[in-house]
Simulated assay, not measured.
Amino acid sequence: MRKRGRAIYTNYLGKETVFRKDFVGWLKHVAKPLFGDSFVAPDPFPDDGPLEFEIQGVPTDQEPHDSARYDYNFTSLNLYSYDLWNNAFNPFTLPEFLINAAEPPSNVQIFNESRHALSRADTARQFHRYLGGNQPTEQFTIVITTFDRDEMLNSTLKSFHKIAYLNKIVVVWCNEKRSPPRNWPQIQVPIEFVSAPDSLNSRFIPFDNIKTEAVLSLDDDIVLSHEMVLFSFRVWRENRDQLVGLVHRSTKYSAGHPVYEPNGACQFSLILPTSAFLHKTYLEAYTYQMDPSVREHVDATMNCEDIAMNFLIAHLTKKPPIKTTLYRDFK
Rank of each mutant, 00 (worst) to 15 (best):
E103A: 15
S114H: 06
T93Q: 01
L94G: 15
R115T: 13
N90L: 06
A121L: 00
T123G: 02
E113V: 05
L98F: 10
N107S: 11
T123K: 01
A121E: 03
E103C: 12
D122H: 03
A88V: 10
L118I: 12
P105S: 08
R120Q: 13
P95R: 10
A101C: 10
H116P: 00
S119Q: 11
P95D: 12
A117Q: 02
A117P: 02
A121R: 00
N107W: 01
L94N: 09
E103I: 10
F92K: 03
N90D: 06
N100L: 12
A117G: 04
E96G: 10
S114T: 13
F97Y: 15
T93E: 03
A101L: 04
D122M: 05
S106T: 07
A121W: 06
E103D: 06
N112Y: 01
H116K: 06
T93S: 09
E96T: 15
P105I: 04
L94S: 11
S106K: 00
I110H: 01
R115F: 08
P95T: 11
N112D: 02
F97G: 06
A88S: 12
F89D: 06
D122Y: 00
E113S: 13
E96Q: 13
F92Y: 06
F97E: 09
S119V: 15
R120Y: 02
P105L: 00
I99M: 14
S119R: 09
Q109Y: 04
P105V: 05
E96H: 07
F97K: 09
H116E: 15
A124D: 13
A117K: 04
E113R: 01
D122S: 12
T93C: 08
A102Q: 05
P91C: 05
S114V: 14
S106H: 03
F92P: 03
P104V: 10
N90F: 02
I110R: 07
L94P: 00
S119H: 06
N112T: 12
F111W: 01
L94Y: 07
A102L: 04
F89G: 09
N100E: 06
E103Y: 08
S114R: 06
I99H: 00
F97Q: 01
N112S: 15
E103Q: 13
T123C: 02
P104A: 15
N112I: 07
L94H: 08
A124F: 02
Q109W: 07
P91G: 03
F97T: 07
A101E: 05
F92I: 10
R125W: 00
